[in-house]
């Protein structure tokens, strides 16, 4: 790929989603844009750049940025953290809940495996663990197509076999004639899917008791990471918990966000949501 083409696309990614595509990973560009190129009837990324330049600020640039983000996920990814959230954190949240509900946000949740894994774990809790409290899970992704896939609750032959035991597959999914597997209505009804860019304020999604934002920050530029952390932390309830990926840290990025003492790898606000700021 021509260097100028790479820089144009890398710039669109930085601006649109905060994603950092270093030159060593320029191969990702062609791989991840292949479907979009086909749909637009374009033969190369080069042509795409020409079109983008002739129509600056078009909707297409946003789609390009969305398509470039990683969609990699699997069922029960980082399982210990998910189990701790469901078995320890949610019962605590449920006891404190004043409006009869506990809300969870899977930020950058791709095709929904994280949200549905949580829903499965919740369904396996001993009865009465959460009392009458309703658990609401929202999963968001920047990419409209990815969100649509999450919303369908349909998983292919390979996806359904990664991270998921056959016992859970048979309990929670039905096989379709296409050989794909569809999540049960009971679990699907617990999960809401929205398209959302984490670089934008998330007020519209409401306040959450637990926010998972795992393996999303890793591929972002530092300014984008900070902005995303600020945006998600502002949606935390007063004793809400933000959980990042195992290799991710918010240390030193946001003033007013501190590591949780009870949950390793988790963060909590120690100021009012409105007082959270980017650390100097």
């Amino acid at each position: 790929m021509d260097e100028s083409v790479y820089s144009e696309i890398a710039q669109i990614a930085r601006k649109g989603s905060g994603q950092d595509i270093p030159p060593t990973k320029s191969y990702l560009i062609e791989a991840r844009l292949a479907t979009l190129l086909r749909r637009e009837g374009l033969s190369s990324v080069d042509e795409l750049v020409h079109i983008l330049n002739s129509r600056p600020d078009s909707k297409l640039a946003g789609e390009v940025a969305a398509e470039l983000t990683s969609k990699k996920t699997r069922f029960f990814d980082g399982r210990p953290a998910l189990e701790r959230i469901v078995q320890t954190v949610l019962p605590d949240c449920a006891r404190r809940a004043t409006d009869g509900r506990v809300r969870i946000w899977c930020a950058g949740g791709s095709t929904g495996q994280e949200a549905y894994s949580l829903a499965m774990l919740i369904s396996e809790l001993p009865q009465d663990t959460l009392g009458d409290v309703q658990i609401e899970i929202v999963t968001t992704d920047i990419c409209e197509k990815t969100s649509a896939s999450a919303r369908s609750g349909i998983f292919g032959h390979f996806e359904i076999q990664k991270g998921l035991s056959v016992r859970r597959m048979l309990t929670h999914f039905t096989r379709l004639e296409t050989s794909e597997w569809q999540i049960s209505h009971a679990l699907a009804s617990k999960v809401g899917v929205r398209t959302h860019n984490l670089m934008q304020p998330a007020d519209g999604l409401g306040i959450f008791d637990v926010i998972l934002c795992r393996n999303v920050l890793t591929e972002m530029t530092r300014p984008a990471r900070t902005q995303v952390l600020l945006n998600v932390a502002r949606q935390l309830s007063d004793r809400g918990l933000l959980v990042l990926g195992e290799k991710e840290s918010a240390a030193g990025l946001i003033a007013g966000l501190e590591p949780s003492r009870a949950f390793r790898g988790g963060y909590m606000r120690n100021v009012d949501a409105g007082e959270l700021t980017i650390a100097a």
Binding site: H157, F158, G163
Partner: peptide, 16 residues
């Protein structure tokens, strides 16, 4: 104890 649906790849075997 578990079930793999053919065709499989390395990732599926490892996961199962």
């Amino acid at each position: 104890n578990e079930f793999i649906m053919k065709p499989f790849d390395a990732d599926i075997i490892e996961s199962k």
